[in-house]
């Protein structure tokens, strides 16, 4: 049976929900090997944290260059493993880091790459949504090892307990992969809310909040949602940049996206248009985001959100 590699995805040392999604897609094609690239001494612990999803094997490579040199070092190790083990495909989480790693591995292994897939089928056909989600494209890598980056939150993960066979591998990294040095890393401030790209529900605020995100956060918390923001809100310093949704922020694809006081510029839409259900609260009935809303409330968010929060709480109790 063929073997598929997934690059195990960690944020701030913790495994993300995306691992089970990548494994689920990989298992359609063959047995799944998760590659764990960890700091020295941390490999086994990181491997054992990959406890869910159809993962049958874990390969661990330990090196402090991964955190010191970032993308280039990770790509070097992964390219070496792909070259020696010839998997049927390599699946990587589609975020900035994952896409850059995949890009370098594609060059190194002379392989085709497809980014931002929302689905992968058993014959390695990748599904992408392009042009702001208005068009579906199916494509296949025709050269080398198919390298596909998969958008978090797009595939329904099979949450079976994983009992993989673990193997440790020694690799020497190329000098070329050590040319950029990371001197400090600050992980995003997470708080108690779910990760934006992993959340089932995202509630975002824009310029219409006028700097007061408390009704947005209260509504989000009533549903266990993540909080996002438009660029107008992050640029004004009302919310951290890491929460920006859109073309130059994060792409999110939750079950439910609630936009509060956001007009719907094309750059904002680019990051949320594939959400399954879209709710818009805006006092301007002409706001363009209403065009793609499943449910729209024309009104003041400061009046609507507190009542909606009460309504959700009442429903839950």
């Amino acid at each position: 049976m063929s073997n598929v590699f997934i690059l195990a995805d960690f944020l701030d040392g913790k495994p993300t929900k995306t691992n089970a999604e990548l494994a689920t897609a990989g298992a359609r094609i063959g047995s799944v090997t998760a590659v764990v690239l960890a700091p020295v001494g941390k490999g086994e612990a990181q491997a054992s944290s990959l406890a869910t999803g159809p993962i049958s094997q874990i390969l661990i490579v330990e090196s402090d260059y991964f955190s010191q040199n970032g993308v280039a070092a990770v790509a070097d190790a992964l390219a070496q493993l792909v070259t020696t083990k010839s998997p049927a495909a390599l699946l990587v989480a589609s975020h900035a880091f994952g896409k850059e790693v995949a890009a370098r591995v594609a060059v190194r292994t002379d392989s085709g790459i497809i980014t931002d897939a929302v689905d992968v089928s058993s014959d390695l056909t990748a599904t992408q949504l392009v042009f702001g989600g208005s068009t579906t494209v199916h494509s296949k890598v025709s050269h080398g090892t198919p390298i596909i980056t998969v958008r978090p939150n797009s595939i329904n993960a099979e949450l079976t307990p994983a009992t993989p066979v673990v193997e440790k591998i020694e690799l020497a990294l190329d000098e070329n992969s050590k040319k950029a040095t990371i001197t400090s890393s600050k992980p995003p401030v997470q708080g108690d809310r779910p990760q934006l790209t992993e959340a089932n529900i995202v509630v975002s605020g824009g310029r219409g909040t006028n700097g007061d995100f408390s009704p947005v956060e209260a509504f989000a918390d009533s549903m266990g949602a993540a909080v996002g923001a438009s660029r107008a809100a992050t640029d004004a310093g009302w919310y951290p940049h890491t929460h920006q949704v859109g073309q130059t922020g994060k792409s999110v694809s939750p079950q439910l996206y609630v936009a509060c006081g956001i007009s719907g510029a094309i750059q904002h839409r680019a990051g949320m248009q594939t959400s399954k259900t879209i709710v818009v609260i805006n006092k301007d009935p002409e706001a363009p985001l209403f065009e793609i809303a499943d449910f729209g409330v024309i009104g003041d968010l400061f009046a609507v959100l507190p009542k909606a929060t009460e309504g959700v709480k009442a429903h839950k109790s």
């Binding site: 392989s111 296949k140 890598v141 050269h143 793609i292 449910f295 729209g296 409330v297 024309i298």
Partner: peptide
Amino acid sequence: AWSLVADSAPRPPRAAGIKVTD
């Protein structure tokens, strides 16, 4: 080519949503 597009199709437009005035 490194990858080939098998097909592409416009997705059905979102059905018109519900809009209420507060």
